[in-house]
Amino acid sequence: MKDTKESFVTEDGRHIGSVIMEMRNITLRFGGVVAITNASFDIREGEIRAIIGPNGAGKSSMLNVINGFYHPQEGEIWFRGKKRPSLRPYEIAEQGIARTFQNIALFKGMTTVENVMTGRQLMLKKNFLWQLLRIGPALDEEVVHRRRCEEIIDFLEIQAIRNSPVGSLPYGLQKRVELARALAMEPKLLLLDEPMAGMNVEEKEDMSRFILDVNDQYGTTIALIEHDMSVVMDLADRVVVLDYGKMLADGTPDEVQKNQAVIDAYLGVEH
């Protein structure tokens, strides 16, 4: 990966743009505990960026910083060329950042298609009075967005469960519904927190294919946390390695794999 500010095209023909999000010297503390120490990295438009590291390294905290659950004590976050002030999570959603959760956070009382429909929440604009009448523009709006949701459901191949309550679905499918919900937001930056945790090999392959498809077809920028190194090395354009809240390395999967500090702290050596 070239270290330039300009956009370029990768070997496999994907278009990587300029920097969309930049974390500068982020430090996050909870009382006396330092979760992240002076971490800096950037995410380019259109790339798949992986954040790896052992348990407790601060990966999920980093995602929580990005989408506004935590506010770092030090450091700056730059998003789309602007320094981002301290915002609430829903304001960050309005800026176009979506995410999935490590422990699935679906709306259990709703069906698959209703869950996906919640992703369109910010795009539904008609006010209270129209909602209450549910005729004309309010219904038209609902229909337009419903159609988009059905397309996303088709795209992720979950048509068969579209009317099932999500609580009763198997784990792998729930993860996929959660991805569908995040995609329905049409995000500029998609954060995936361990999208393949607890899956078997086939489910992991499916999920990897969907992540690549999403990146390819919608051009969505993706930042993901994952523990399966083979998946990370295959999917990611660039990898950040965290350990005890400190940055160990930042680079292409090949560079990171050869980095001695990363091998010592996380990857280990084959015996």
Binding site: P89, M110, T118, Q121, L122, K126, M185
Partner: peptide, 29 residues
Amino acid sequence: GNLVRGRIGRSWMMIRDMDIAAELIGVRP
């Protein structure tokens, strides 16, 4: 019936089922 099937009803149910995720999708609690 109209309210609960539309945007506002969904925002209520989102808060009920998982308020953290609702906030991340843009629902103002």
